[in-house]
Design a protein around this nucleic acid. Sequence first.
DNA 1: ATGAAAGCGCTAACAA
DNA 2: TTGTTAGCGCTTTCAT
Lengths: 328, 328
Amino acid sequence: MATIKDIARRAGVGVATVSRALNRNGYVKPDTLAKIEQVAEELGYVPNRQARAMVNGATMTLGILIPDMDNALFMRIVRGINDAAYPKGYSLLVMDSRGNPEWERQILRTMQELRVDGLILFATPGTAELVRSIRHRIPIVVLDRLIPGSDVPQISVDHYQGARLAADLLIRQCKYPPAMLTGPELVTSSHPRLQGYLDSLKAVGLSTKDARTELGGFTYEGGYHGMTKLLADRRSLDGVFAANDLSALGALRAIRDAGYQCPDDIKIVGFDDIEATRYIYPSLTTIRQPMDAIGQAALHMLSQQMDGEPVTENLILLPGELIRRESC
Amino acid sequence: MATIKDIARRAGVGVATVSRALNRNGYVKPDTLAKIEQVAEELGYVPNRQARAMVNGATMTLGILIPDMDNALFMRIVRGINDAAYPKGYSLLVMDSRGNPEWERQILRTMQELRVDGLILFATPGTAELVRSIRHRIPIVVLDRLIPGSDVPQISVDHYQGARLAADLLIRQCKYPPAMLTGPELVTSSHPRLQGYLDSLKAVGLSTKDARTELGGFTYEGGYHGMTKLLADRRSLDGVFAANDLSALGALRAIRDAGYQCPDDIKIVGFDDIEATRYIYPSLTTIRQPMDAIGQAALHMLSQQMDGEPVTENLILLPGELIRRESC
DNA sequence: ATGAAAGCGCTAACAA
DNA sequence: TTGTTAGCGCTTTCAT
């Protein structure tokens, strides 16, 4: 691989001149500049970012830690980050922890070794203290799966408000108190969604005894199993709030397999608004997460920190939006 | 950020000793090793990979270029790569070109600047020559969207064979010659899938005049529009091969919106077997891509090249598998 | 068993 | 306008 040294020798100039020419800073006589560019071209020169990073600090890479690359919501958000980061010259280093806390620790370590300029992560409870220690060295922003009570900058859809929207709609549309397919206990976004559901019941005078929950686990399969359980014990059930779209799709399937119809027999409301929800039948009524806005906000917050500016707010909750379709 | 120099000073030893100790190579007296580790711990030392890479060449990062991060199939494959690469200490640098050839060029450039140890990419026609020039500098493997006629190592499901499977099934199950929703003209995997469809028709004595194709574009929306067109001109249509699952889902929706039923009125077969296909209604009969196998094979081929071994085969075609479900 | 020093590719003073 | 030089953090001879 050709280096600036090679170019310098071949062009008969010093390395500094080459550097100046290629980076277009400092004075360089047009002739020499042309010559240098020509030689660089001939040699197929490609600058080495590692070396550059060593001297001026910035690697121009952003680390992203996701619990599951194969999740439509996460990747949709990451795409938003990518689209916002790319024009600024940042590259994304995406690593998937598969929800494994130990892997997560290692990944966070690797990100530091790579000296990423900023870190965006979907947290898990096991990461909380780790994040606390890292944030003093690297700008961080936590997305979607928040760390409750932490003062790390965090951005997310308002899980609670979204859940209220969903539950309120179901209560209005159903004869009986709706049930809920909850997210995994260990995922923080599960909690405000559950709380929203419970509070909506309370708001119309229903007691927690009227609440019925089953684990949906944020997956197709979990939703399927949870719904199947709900159906097995059918105490007048005609509405279900699935904590995310994946589990909603699983639930839809379970309803059908059990011989019922959605929305006629049972109505469903999901959460996230992943693309598939528009095309399936019945199309899914759901709470839309502002994915692009989240991605942009994340990058914005990170930029602020990287520029040394104080972060204005450290918890941004973007409102979810109710999207009505066929399932409720 | 603490450096080995800091550790050396504080531990009262030379930097070389620190390096040896931390990397556990060369002789280091147990006492000094302990001391060094302790100091490193105190200082919260995290090695700088850039610096390490500068001296020993390897960055331990693999670059991945995808045309769309938000595509279930691609990310499923990338996840497979991730799972195979992670244990070997490699980090993935994932960049999304959004199918834009110009972005693609720049990304490939960036990957080189970052000195990734290997490159995995889903090609587009515009990349072909670029890839040719890069492959002499960086180990490369092309996935799924192949470069026809190139001798770059490539891995993919056998698009043609899979398409034959799909079309043969439809021909068997339908009264009339099936139609096809094709992929984008510019995406190479579209071609063998189309060819398979045409050849299947031919194999049962149907002429190309019996073939009916409409652009499905590999997207939900494209599938929806394409199917709508097919339906508008309804010459006894009762079977459709959608070139991928996304367009199949779009088509399913179009069928329903037009007042028809799948599979009763029209049967559908997709391609890819993304996770959603199992849960929607009707569940989708499709051709399964061996995604994990593709990911593993990709990493294997890359490893071979990185180790300087000659690549045994430069085109691996993995068979697609017919998965029968409700749609046909 | 350990330290001194060279050098990886590049940028940024500092001179000239 | 250009060249020389000193690092950036680390690994690796080569001495000791």
